[in-house]
Amino acid sequence: MPPTAKPPVTGVLHSWDLSTGVDGPGTRFVAFLAGCPLRCLYCHNPDTRPMRHGRPCTADEIVREAAKYTAFIHASGGGATISGGEPLLQPALTGELLHRLKHDLGLHTALDTSGFLGARATDALLADTDLVLLDIKSWDHALYRHLTGQRLAPTLDFARRLADLGTEVWVRFVLVPHLTDLAANVEGVAAFAASLGNVTRVDVLPFHKLGAPKWRALGLDFPLADTPAPTPAQVAEARSVFAAHGLHAV
């Protein structure tokens, strides 16, 4: 008897895009999966949080789309990134995509995650991940809960697991005036990141309000509407804290 065909791996896709510089090295095919368990006060894509805002799709569809751009991606030294929402909310689809993008298309792979659902990432999924873009939103546990509605501990556990595996990590830290910019908070994230030994870059991302229209379109009040963006001097100061710990901060 012929072998039974493997059923397609399915999930919910919000959108995809080609990006340069912000989702990993080089030009990248980025698949934004729908759904996120965090409710970040500064979320700039609140439309990706509910699963219902995506569309059903198969891994085959996404890989076929990425394949159209492989020559361009390879020429730029880029790859593919699975983002969201939170891609580990859909671990089967995420794992299948990382495997096929890496092995079928020969692309450098990145996983963009908060780490909150890191326990859902299998060893096989992480073996197919060349780089993790890890959002560490705060070092203070109470502040993390205030910012996201969730606990910080799972993210720290996932970070330590990645360090044990030797997986390359870029830490992402959003600098929000009067919230995440407190000296002890920045110092805490920097010291932790430096202790891991596998963090090759830290992106200090200035808070902005570009997502505010999306909140309004969803009938939601943007919680940080009155919060100013950090000044260039404040961003430079935060980067200097990470640099003082021997980290490459941009």
Rank of each mutant, 00 (worst) to 15 (best):
F29Q: 05
C36Q: 09
G54H: 04
A31P: 04
R28A: 12
R28I: 07
G35I: 15
M51L: 15
G21A: 14
S76C: 07
V30T: 13
F72E: 04
G54F: 10
T58W: 06
Y69A: 00
P46G: 06
L38M: 15
D47I: 15
R49T: 14
R55Q: 15
P56M: 15
A59E: 03
L33C: 01
D60Y: 09
C57W: 05
P46Y: 06
T48G: 07
G21T: 07
R49Q: 13
E61A: 08
G54T: 09
V30Q: 01
H53T: 04
I62D: 05
M51H: 05
D23F: 02
E65V: 02
T58N: 06
I73N: 00
E65Q: 08
E61T: 06
V30M: 03
H53D: 10
A31G: 05
F72H: 15
A34Y: 05
T58E: 07
N45V: 03
G54E: 09
N45C: 07
C43S: 11
C36D: 11
D60A: 13
A71I: 01
P25K: 11
C36R: 08
F72A: 10
D23K: 02
P46M: 10
G26S: 05
A34M: 05
A67L: 15
M51E: 15
K68W: 06
L33A: 00
A31V: 04
R28T: 07
T48H: 06
L33I: 05
M51Y: 08
G77Y: 08
H53I: 04
F72D: 06
A67H: 00
H44E: 09
P56L: 10
I73C: 04
A67K: 05
L38I: 12
R55P: 07
R39D: 09
F32T: 01
Y42H: 10
V30R: 04
P56V: 07
V63D: 01
V63H: 01
M51F: 14
R55L: 13
P50T: 08
R39E: 09
R52W: 07
K68R: 14
A59S: 12
C40Q: 08
F29R: 02
C43F: 06
V22D: 13
G24Y: 03
C57G: 10
C36S: 12
Y69K: 02
R39Q: 14
A31T: 03
G54C: 12
G35K: 12
E61K: 01
P46I: 13
R28S: 12
V30S: 02
A71Y: 01
R28E: 06
V22R: 11
N45K: 04
A75C: 11
Y42N: 04
R64E: 12
R49L: 13
R64K: 13
